[in-house]
Design a binder for these strands. Structure first.
Length: 737
DNA sequence: CTAGGGTTAG
């Protein structure tokens, strides 16, 4: 007998029921496949005769079905239904469905369950539900298929409701059903519900089932409980590649990359072959750990196993190279790829954004940022369209470059493309406007968001705080809590710095306690730095708080033993308090830790070009226009009471005495002067600086803002300074050096 | 009928 056209049969060998060997009560109703048997002859010989062995395409197959006046066996319908899933063709599914009803095959429970599935996979849950309700008989697979459809349509609550409906109907779940309902719990982040199901699983002793174990470990991982996730994994009997991959990425998601890598090793010893998902997960662990060595070994392994031209795998290794600063390797991969996807572009852009953040000095940071913008331009010229990942990365780059114009263009582009409504993009916009010095636009962007995450709230609180609007920052923090959004450590950095800014020491301490006790957040350097700010602001008026300041200082030192700016902060603090023993102790420690000199760079973006400056820059020679302008401004400033004060230059002790007499042209003075000379009047000057501003520059630039009637925005490594008419948004406590 | 991954904001 000639074989059936392959399009009608395909090569789908449906596996009969699963490895569910455990005795859930009454699972005998699993024997539903009696009709899905493939060995029987079909009633479609006429099709075979007319088309011989030529493959029919989807359309032809459909018309054959449509013309058929009597029903076919289910194995005729199924390949076509599968094709419907692939093409998401709902109306075709309906046509087939109608044909089945018309010709009386609807009593085939297996086939009808398949149709429920197809509707579910096409996102047509109303059709799926209606069909299930109309079926004269349904079994656990029918119910599970419906649940699975609801999950794919992101309606986990309905899926859970269907589950309990099924139980009330007297149908017992299988391992698959439990896996599906656990997945619903995962989407709902409901450990509580999950634990109820888990109880059921323990009771029936099916914890070692693979589907169940995998679903449990995924649930606990996504709900932030790595221990439980690993426990579920270790109780799984037959660990397949999915079990391992789930466990490995659980470690990654929950901040234990080392454990993730060791699980990967264990997996290899266990003889389980990794697949592309495993590789990408492992690469992302390597990214976090900056483990380029391990990464390239894994890369070799992936090539050995045939993943050399696998797009996700290549994307992830390319991103790893970028994150580790190996830009040439990354470029080589990029240029050598057979096909690239939007993810590839995004990885390149995000990778450069990362390099910008990790750069040792401001200049290379800046060139990474510019490269990211270039790649974005290339993407725009290609036939691909940027998505929310692209926009959020590029907006971040604009924030770091204080490139307001590009940022505004991106804003327009997100409106046009509809990505503005995305919460991550919206948040990135808030940040961009904040970092470019426009609190009004940041605020507007925040208000216009329809959904806000913890990070959105935090961004806006940070914006208020950095702009010196402490009351609004604290008010928004209370709003956030009222909205039931849980703050994190960064939220508290913003809250504490708002308090320190406004001199609200008691409130600041109260929030510090709230953070530790109510939210169980461990303080990090930035929190201690805020406390020290408060202390400095308070001076030595209260002995108890003085001790608090020193306590915070020591914590900061221990947490941050390599950071030059921390030392500058501490040295000034101890100098002001006249504690010279501590001064020399800190200095000694600096030597021991081999803390380098601060690298003072500033840059300013004028139109599409960015200009960078270092102190007493050769590009601004004496007698040049920048020098002349600064001299002129200095004299005018002196006339209205400015007196240059020396600042503490770190690490070169011999130079210390000279500093008081010398007027230092720190880089931001040069950048500001350059900006004044090269941009139209009334346009705010926006400068980025690699380290914190010193006191001298801070007071000088306040006066420049008066003398030139220009708004000057300087973003230094710690905060934002917006100088308007002689006042700075930081409240003068942002410059301690 | 089920389960897994890479690019993301403070």
């Amino acid at each position: 007998m000639a074989s059936l056209p392959s399009v009608l049969v395909g090569n789908n060998t449906l596996k009969l029921q699963p490895d569910f060997k455990k005795h859930l009560p009454n699972t005998s109703n699993l024997s539903i496949h009696q009709k899905g048997n493939y060995n029987n002859k079909t009633s479609t010989t006429q099709l075979v005769e007319s088309h011989e062995s030529v493959s029919l395409d989807f359309r032809e197959a459909l018309s054959v079905i449509q013309d058929g006046t009597s029903g076919f066996e289910s194995n005729v319908y199924i390949p076509i239904l599968q094709e419907c899933v692939k093409n998401r063709s709902v109306s075709e599914t309906q046509m087939i469905h109608a044909h089945i009803i018309k010709t009386g095959t609807f009593e085939d429970l297996y086939l009808m369950t398949f149709v429920v599935n197809v509707y579910g996979k096409c996102g047509e849950m109303d059709f799926a539900r209606k069909l299930l309700d109309q079926l004269p008989k349904k079994n656990v697979v029918t119910w599970t298929s419906l649940m699975s459809g609801y999950i794919q349509s992101l309606e986990p609550i309905v899926a859970v409701r269907v589950f309990s409906e099924m139980l009330e109907d007297g149908t017992y779940p299988t391992n698959f059903t439990l896996g599906v309902v656990l997945h619903a719990c995962t989407l709902l982040y409901s450990v509580k519900l999950g634990e109820q199901i888990h109880g059921f699983i323990v009771k029936y002793q099916v914890e070692d089932d693979t589907s169940i174990g995998n679903a449990l470990s995924c649930l606990y991982s996504k709900c932030g409980s790595l221990d439980s996730a690993v426990k579920a994994f270790s109780r799984t009997g037959d660990k397949n590649v999915i079990s391992w991959t789930t466990a490995i990425s659980a470690c990654g998601d929950n901040g234990d990359s080392v454990k993730g890598l060791s699980l990967f090793t264990e997996m290899l010893y266990d003889g389980v072959e990794p697949n592309e998902y495993t590789f990408t997960s492992v690469m992302s662990l390597c990214c976090v750990m900056q483990a380029l060595g391990v990464g390239s070994q894994v890369h070799s392994l992936s090539i050995k196993l045939g993943y050399q031209y696998n797009l996700p795998v290549t994307n992830s290794i390319m991103y790893l190279y970028l994150k580790c600063g190996h830009i040439d390797e990354a470029k080589k991969l990029f240029e050598g790829m057979e096909t690239i996807s939007l993810v590839t572009w995004n990885a390149m852009i995000a990778g450069h954004a990362q390099m910008m953040e990790q750069a040792e000095d401001s200049l290379s940071a800046h060139s990474s940022g510019m490269e990211a913008l270039n790649i974005f331009k290339r993407l725009n010229r290609s036939n691909m369209k940027p998505d929310l990942f692209t926009f959020s990365s590029v907006l971040t780059v604009c924030s770091a470059l204080v490139a307001l114009e590009q940022g505004e263009q991106l804003h327009a582009q997100t409106i046009k493309t509809g990505y503005l409504s995305d919460v991550v993009v919206g948040t990135a916009l808030v940040n961009m406007y904040n970092k470019c010095g426009s609190i009004e636009k940041a605020c507007k962007a925040f208000i216009e968001m329809s959904i806000r995450t913890m990070i959105s709230w935090t961004s806006m609180i940070t914006a208020f705080s950095q702009h010196g609007h402490s009351q609004q920052a604290l008010q928004l923090f209370e709003d956030m809590r009222l909205a039931g959004v849980r703050p994190n450590k960064i939220t508290f950095v913003a809250v504490l710095s708002a308090c320190s800014h406004a001199g609200m020491v008691d409130e600041g301490l109260a929030y510090f306690k709230m953070m530790k006790h109510e939210y169980k957040i461990k303080p990090v350097t930035d929190h201690y730095a805020c406390l020290i700010d408060m202390y400095v602001r308070l001076g030595c008026r209260s002995h108890g708080k003085l001790e608090l300041g020193f306590y915070a200082a020591e914590q900061l030192l221990n947490l941050n033993p390599k950071d030059c700016e921390t030392y500058v902060l501490l040295l000034n603090m101890y100098l002001n308090a006249g504690r010279y023993q501590d001064v020399s102790r800190v200095r000694k420690r600096m030597k021991e830790e081999k803390v380098g000199k601060l690298k003072d760079w500033s840059w300013i973006s004028i139109r599409d070009k960015v200009h960078s400056f270092k102190p007493d820059d050769r590009l601004c020679p004496p007698g040049g226009e920048v020098d002349l302008l600064l001299g002129d401004l200095l004299e005018k400033a002196r006339n209205i009471g400015y007196e240059p004060h020396g600042s503490l230059e770190v690490t070169d002790e011999e130079e210390e005495d000279k500093t008081t007499s010398k007027i230092i042209h720190h880089s931001e003075k040069l950048a500001v002067a350059y900006g004044l000379l090269n941009s139209p009047n009334a346009v705010p000057i926006r400068v980025i600086k690699s380290i914190s501003m010193c006191r001298d520059c801070h007071s000088f630039i306040k006066l420049i803002s008066v003398l030139t009637e220009r708004d000057i925005i300087i973003r230094d490594s710690k905060r934002l300074h917006k100088f308007v008419n002689g006042q700075c948004s930081c409240g003068d406590f942002g410059s301690l050096m």
